[in-house]
């Protein structure tokens, strides 16, 4: 039913989706780590600002945030460039999509990681301090690895959300899987088939992710007494 070539388009869309999801997820985790530490150990102003950030991002639809951040972000960068006497630039859609979804993911990661850090038995952190670890070393060797088993379920869920949220970029016209599907479908009029195929691709991505997640979870919980589930 489909002319040759559409399959390639769909796969390219899938690749773009995975790329955006992976990028946004990485940014989200970095923002999340910084945000969690800010919320736990930061000063009162920083804590309130972070609270504002996580509250707003979690209450306003991703779609609205994507449009706002996309327009405002590109505008701001170009104004800054002009102010410093540089040429305006066209912001790459891929980069913009990754950044915007990353900021959204960051708000959720902040909460997940904050909870995970609070779940670490305090004595383990105290032991590290008692043996003279510097704050950086403590973070790298103790806090981050020790919080992982508590954070993995939440972070895994965020990865699944990230893969699905990439579809929202279709609305701002970025050629990820959903948008490629719509183009293919409206050209060939085979809407039913193409959306079914795209759904299967997303589902496969999710199921594949679940297999990986189960392995990562098992690894992260190696020091825990009760095996997961």
């Amino acid at each position: 039913m489909s002319p040759p070539g559409w399959g390639g388009n769909l796969l390219r869309g899938l690749f773009n989706s995975v790329l955006i999801a992976a990028g946004a997820y990485s940014i989200g985790i970095m923002v999340g780590i910084a945000g969690a530490f800010g919320k736990l150990y930061g000063g009162p102003v920083l804590r309130d600002l972070l609270e504002l950030y996580t509250t707003i991002v979690r209450a306003v639809p991703e779609l609205v945030l994507i449009l706002l951040l996309y327009f405002a972000g590109t505008d701001l960068i170009n104004r800054l460039l002009e102010a410093f006497g540089y040429q305006r630039i066209d912001i790459n859609g891929l980069v913009a999509g990754i950044c915007v979804l990353g900021i959204v993911q960051g708000a959720y990661s902040t909460e997940v990681i904050r909870g995970a850090i609070l779940a670490i038995p305090q004595g383990q952190i105290e032991a590290a301090r008692a043996y003279g670890m510097s704050p950086g070393l403590l973070l790298r060797r103790i806090t981050l690895p020790a919080m992982l088993p508590f954070a993995i379920p939440g972070l895994a869920n965020l990865w699944l959300i990230a893969t699905k949220d990439t579809a929202l970029l279709a609305i701002v016209g970025f050629n990820e899987l959903t948008q490629e599907t719509r183009t293919a479908a409206s050209t060939t009029k085979a809407y039913f088939t193409f959306f079914l195929v795209a759904g299967a691709l997303y589902l496969l991505l999710t199921l594949f992710s679940n297999v990986i997640i189960a392995r990562v979870e098992k690894w992260a919980r190696r020091g825990m007494h009760v095996e997961s589930h």
Partner: peptide
């Protein structure tokens, strides 16, 4: 699967 895709699948498909 993304909700947007489900929506489009039902409406367009």
């Amino acid at each position: 699967t993304p909700l947007l895709l489900q929506l489009w699948f039902l409406y367009y498909g």
